[in-house]
Design a protein around this nucleic acid. Structure first.
Length: 298
DNA sequence: CCCCAGGCTTAAT
DNA sequence: ATTAAGCATGGG
């Protein structure tokens, strides 16, 4: 019944902007630019994408829940109305950006490693996620592997987030700062956050009190943004750059974690030419991270 | 049992 | 300014 293939009419397509076919609460879109759900889901930028047995991903973002499923070729079924797609998901998936041309800026003669990384990770995009969710998720991420991060984030949502009912199953929204602050220390510790508990609470306090205005940082320079984010106890350079990149869409932000550090040491012993890749350093960072973590490196 | 994970704070130099 | 220990916890 849900996202049933070919249960809606077939129309024509056009080139640059995604085409939309609508049938009730399921729309079908065509995306001609890079867009690979599995690679995005496994690229370490989102922790609440869940794939079910039918191949659909369930994505929760800012009070909305979406199911999206590839239909083969460059077509996808989305469980939403067209107006919600236009208002929410088009931006979330950053469909106004041309990732193919961003990949195309890399010259294999000059930088063969990055060229290979871009080819391997073709289909990855930088999602425009909620900065508050990114801040807490990446505070939790320190000294954890990705499966463990997902576990903690989901426990936190179940413990403090608003419960919503969908047609078949329920889901939880990412909790607000106030909802996190309402948790007891025991309840927060039960999310397996460990020593990061006080960092999560510090961040929630700063946002709840208006000391840290995350939305306002979208319009600030990268330097001002990193300084504001690292003023929160528990947020260092790496987490601040992840929030900038994945939550504020500062696509030149360049998070350096253990994998990127290995890449810089092993593949660029004479230095990484950051200045060649402005203003897209964060996007290239993401291709390299995915390449090293899932392919080339292991 | 081991080592490591999308790191950071704190203390000591 | 740089370096080192300590940190909770679970995946592989």
């Amino acid at each position: 019944m849900f996202l049933m293939e070919h249960s809606y009419p077939i129309l024509c397509c056009y080139f640059t902007e995604p085409e939309i076919l609508c049938w009730g609460d399921v729309i079908e879109i065509q995306i001609t630019d890079d867009f690979d759900l599995d690679r995005i889901a496994d690229s370490g930028q989102c922790f609440r994408w869940n794939k079910d047995s039918s191949g659909s991903y369930r994505i929760i973002h800012k009070g909305h829940c979406l199911r999206i499923r590839p239909l083969g070729k460059d077509r996808f079924a989305l469980s939403c109305k067209e107006d919600v797609y236009q208002a929410v998901w088009y931006d979330y998936f950053d469909l106004g950006e041309d990732y193919r041309s961003i990949r195309g800026r890399v010259n294999r003669e000059v930088d063969p490693f990055l060229a290979s990384a871009c080819e391997y990770g073709k289909g990855i995009r930088i999602l425009r996620q909620d900065p508050w969710e990114m801040l807490i998720s990446f505070i939790i991420s320190q000294n954890k592997n990705i499966p463990a991060i997902k576990k903690s984030v989901e426990l936190l949502c179940e413990a403090a987030g608003k419960h919503c009912e969908a047609s078949e199953d329920g889901y939880y929204l990412f909790p607000t700062p106030e909802e996190i602050l309402s948790l007891s220390d025991e309840a927060l510790a039960a999310c397996r956050i460990g020593y990061r508990c006080r960092y999560v609470k510090a961040a929630a306090m700063d946002v709840a009190e208006g000391k840290l205005n995350l939305e306002g940082l979208k319009n600030e320079s990268e330097g001002t943004t990193i300084k504001a984010l690292t003023s929160v106890c528990g947020v260092g350079a790496k987490v601040a750059n992840c929030v900038s990149l994945f939550g504020l869409h500062h696509v030149n932000a360049f998070p350096i974690d253990v994998w990127i550090r290995r890449i810089l040491e092993n593949e660029y012993p004479d230095g990484y030419p950051m200045e060649n890749y402005n203003p897209y350093n964060g996007i290239y960072q993401q291709y390299m991270f995915y390449f090293y973590r899932t392919g080339y490196g292991s």
